[in-house]
Simulated assay, not measured.
Amino acid sequence: MPLLLVLDGNSLLHRAYHAAAFGELLAPDGSPVWALQGLVGYLARAAAHLSPDAVIVGFDCPVSSARRSDFPLYKAQRPDKSESLVAQLAVAPLLLEECGVCTVVPPAYEADDVLASAAGAARAAGWQSVLMTSDRDAFSLIDATTSVLRVRNGGYGEAVLIGADDLPALYGVTPAQYQDFAALRGDPSDNLPGVRRFGAKTARRLLESFGTVEAAWQADPALVTAAVGAQAATFFTDPSSRGIVERNRRLMSQRADLPLPALASARLPLMYTVMRQALRARGINLGPSLWSLVGGAAPSPALIEQTPELRPWVFRGGLSARRDPTPGQLSLF
């Protein structure tokens, strides 16, 4: 079955910017490019490990937001981005297009919506898809044909490939329950408060007991109290909790119907000379690490040993809370 690799461009570029894995690399004209190099490195590393047949990279619309129009406080708590980050965010879609990578910037929507729409398009075409992101919202998209490659603090070595059978072991909920789980606990990074007294453990206990939020609302209050405790049950059964959960689910839901280029236009391999020229024009030289994107032969063991970015990507078997962004880093994601 063919495989589509879909990247959350904003999420991964922010991650590369913060990690500064390649140092604060500058282009010949002095413009910052270290996050751009990191983003392309993520793409090349994932392609080398997964051998996709096609690649799509999505970015947030930089000029308007349907979610902010719906809820003006959406992401309103985030501090202003640095000039060097803004500059690289602006250049990233253009650079990838110059490299020949299929790139989508949807009007008023976000990279998350590109991931959801691409996963749906892949499923409809009989393909599998892997969604590469540092954002947990993509967990709700996991199914029999869709997996999530989550990149966390620590870079390549902390990537986790999560399929339909893995999420329950990691979070105690199924992919179909994940949106209720997230809506209950909220998302501070998007300025979406959850129901009071509902963190991850309490949300998991409620869903383990009732399956869905709706079923819990319809259940005997005594059973809710038995599942989550008296304090959490009091807040959950308060009428205001419905508004909180419904708002969060609405804003966390990814659109799966965005118009996308045909999968045929996203096919690999890319043209090596075109890609290398586009990167070199901005002072980025990844050399042999591009092999998987351009249809080249796998590097020799000796070259891999000399070039850290070519070494095999070992996926971790679990998620550790200490690897998630700290509150001071939330403006990056």
Rank of each mutant, 00 (worst) to 15 (best):
L170A: 07
R185H: 03
Y171Q: 12
G163H: 08
E158D: 09
I162F: 06
A144M: 02
T145W: 06
Q177C: 11
D165K: 15
G172M: 02
A183T: 00
F181A: 10
R150G: 04
A176H: 02
Q179F: 00
D166R: 07
V148Q: 07
D165N: 15
P175V: 11
D165Y: 07
I162H: 01
D143T: 10
R150L: 15
A164G: 06
A164M: 09
Q177T: 10
D166S: 11
G163C: 08
S147A: 15
D180Y: 01
N153P: 07
L184A: 11
T146N: 02
D180G: 03
R150F: 07
D180V: 04
A182C: 08
N153L: 12
R152V: 10
R152K: 12
A164N: 10
P175W: 00
A159Q: 13
G155S: 11
G172P: 05
D166P: 03
L149A: 13
R150Q: 14
L149E: 03
V173E: 01
T145A: 12
L161M: 05
R185C: 09
A159R: 02
V160P: 01
A164T: 12
G172F: 07
R152S: 13
A159I: 00
G155Y: 04
L149Q: 01
R150I: 14
Y171R: 14
Q179E: 15
T145N: 09
A144I: 07
V151M: 09
V173F: 03
T145C: 10
Y178K: 11
A183R: 02
G163K: 06
A182T: 05
Q177Y: 05
L167A: 09
Q177W: 00
D180I: 02
G154Y: 10
R150A: 11
A182I: 00
D143L: 05
D165I: 08
F181Q: 06
R185Y: 01
R185T: 04
G157M: 12
Y171W: 11
E158H: 12
L161N: 04
V148P: 07
T145R: 13
G172W: 01
Y171G: 07
L149W: 13
G163I: 12
G154P: 08
N153R: 14
L161G: 09
G172A: 08
V151Q: 06
L170T: 00
T174G: 04
E158A: 08
V173C: 05
R185Q: 08
